[in-house]
Design a protein around this nucleic acid. Structure first.
Lengths: 198, 198
DNA sequence: CATATATTCTAGCATTGCTAGTTTGTCAAT
DNA sequence: ATTGACAAACTAGCAATGCTAGAATATATG
């Protein structure tokens, strides 16, 4: 009984600890989306979870890892969104356009999240054996809609992804005209589907 | 004579002042390319030009403006490189490929410069009446090679540029396979030239 | 020479990420 | 119950950053 109780207690503690870790990530995300990543400081996070600063370092090695945890969430959500964008009834071409639009909608609707995923240092490791599934899922969704048009699916998906990422970034920084977003998506779509542009 | 001498002196001072401003930008660029932008601190720049820190703020409003000055140089150099990539004897398709390759070569050969131009906050203003010519020139070079293939040249150039930027960024962050760079360029080229991909 | 005006510097503020060292709490063995 | 060992959390502080107020110094003007 004694040892049984002990195990229960340590399990509860582990649960509480994990819950606290979650609250850190949630707080980081909330502050970032409201006030930008510059406002996500260790002190402010510590305030938010009502613990002292060093506690954060028992959950994450450094600030970048916290950003990384938020980014990981983002990759998971992006994958869900991209998969949902593929309607079973749609033609292959429509599927590509739908995924492209969903991708850009995500980037513009959650700029802070997109920043964490693609701009800020996070320590996330891609294309490795220990790469978490969230990081592969989004790519997989894109590959699904690209596959019907490509010989080398991986390379074509990489290129498609790069085009979307570039569109998102250049527009986010005000270097291309927002009003022509849908026109650019059309060009991307035509690129993938291999149709003549003129 | 007096007033004449005065003017000469103030001109010399203006020259020296401008020269000092140049040295700040050169130092910023040098340090950034060697040790990364995080090492470009006001204190270190002040050391480098052998003046105290506040002097820097008589040349630039803040650190971001210094990054912006380096970025502006970068845009000028990129424009030169892209224009040089267009060989008069090349076919329209070859010109596109050549510009794409030159663009990516630039991005990978000068990552710190590319970062200043596209990632870091710089306060540079695009697509405005007071936008400096360097910022337009690179776009112009791309538009030149895209024009033969596009109806709406501006939109097509924006899309082309975005694709290149995305390729540069994703590869720089290790999210796509470096070994397949030339394959991806081929896909981009085919996109522009409107040829079938299969 | 005296005075006004630029120029430049010293010194310091507030904020940041991160950590060493101490205090506080927990729990088993006596 | 008391003690001692261990874990958890906190206080306090370091070093570095961007930036600035106010003093000091050089320069030009009457």
């Amino acid at each position: 009984m004694k040892t049984g109780a002990k195990v229960g207690i340590s399990e509860r503690k582990a649960r509480e600890r994990e819950e606290r870790g979650r609250r850190i990530v949630v707080a980081a995300r909330t502050i970032a989306e409201r006030d930008g990543w510059a406002s996500v400081t260790i002190r402010r996070l510590a305030d938010e979870i009502e613990y002292s600063q060093p506690v954060l370092y028992s959950h994450f090695q450094n600030r970048d890892e916290i950003v990384g945890a938020v980014a990981l969430e983002g990759f998971g959500e992006l994958a869900v969104i991209l998969r949902a964008a593929i309607r079973p009834s749609s033609t292959p071409g429509e599927a590509v356009e739908s995924v492209a639009t969903a991708y850009l909608d995500f980037a513009f609707a959650r700029p802070a999240m997109y920043e964490a995923m693609f701009i800020l240092p996070t320590g996330l490791r891609f294309a490795r054996s220990d790469t978490p599934p969230q990081l592969r899922a989004g790519f997989g969704a894109m590959a699904t809609v690209i596959a019907p048009f490509a010989q080398d699916v991986d390379t074509a998906t990489e290129t498609f992804w790069a085009a979307l990422h570039g569109l998102a970034e250049l527009e986010r920084h005000g270097r291309i005209r927002p009003a022509f977003r849908s026109h650019r998506i059309t060009l991307i779509m035509q690129m993938v589907s291999g149709q003549l542009q003129r």
